Simulated scan of single mutants.
Amino acid sequence: MPSSLRSWIPAAAADLVLILVFAAIGRDAHARGDIITGAFITAWPFLAGASAAWVVMRVWRAPYAVWPSGVCVWIGAVLIGMLLRAVTGQTVVLPFVIVALISLGIFLLGFRALLALILRTSRKQQRKA
């Protein structure tokens, strides 16, 4: 999907919000309390990883593409996020890595795939009209 100069802003915002939602759901599920501040504490390594992927892969060029943009943001968020959690003494255990991979994959790839499906369906309907 081609992108205009500013069309990357909603995609970046969606990535940010979805990573925060992932962190808030996790904190709530584990009854950690202080969901708002705690979500930011939990999310920052994943946000840093996603941000690094955005910069390194120049995701703003095709911010809504599942491949390679979405996949790189997803893998960057999880890989760098887990590394940052490890070096800062936060928990990194295999079950959490698996949950993060699955959840962030669904979130970060899902909204891009859903948007692509909506656009494709809309184009087909416009051609028929």
Rank of each mutant, 00 (worst) to 15 (best):
P68C: 10
M1G: 15
I98G: 10
F40V: 08
Q125A: 13
F107Q: 04
F96W: 05
V97A: 14
L83S: 07
W74G: 03
V56L: 14
Y64C: 01
V93K: 11
R27I: 05
F107G: 02
A24V: 10
I80A: 12
L84T: 11
Y64W: 15
W74L: 00
S69K: 01
T88I: 09
M82R: 11
A77L: 01
W60C: 05
R85G: 05
A50G: 14
S51G: 15
G49V: 09
S4A: 11
P45T: 07
A86L: 14
R85S: 02
R27Q: 03
G89V: 10
V97S: 00
L117A: 14
A62C: 04
G76W: 00
I106S: 01
L47W: 08
V21C: 03
L20G: 07
L84Q: 03
L83R: 05
L79M: 12
G26A: 09
R58D: 08
A48I: 14
L16Y: 14
I19T: 07
G38F: 11
T91H: 07
K128F: 06
L83Q: 00
A14S: 14
G26P: 06
S4F: 11
P2M: 08
A62H: 15
I41T: 15
V97M: 05
V78R: 01
L79T: 15
S4V: 06
I75P: 00
T42C: 05
L84G: 09
A100W: 01
I102R: 11
G89R: 13
F107R: 07
W67L: 14
S3M: 01
I41F: 06
D28W: 10
I118Q: 08
G89K: 10
L94P: 00
L101R: 07
P68T: 12
Q90V: 02
A50W: 01
I98S: 10
R58V: 08
A12Q: 10
C72W: 12
L79K: 04
L20A: 02
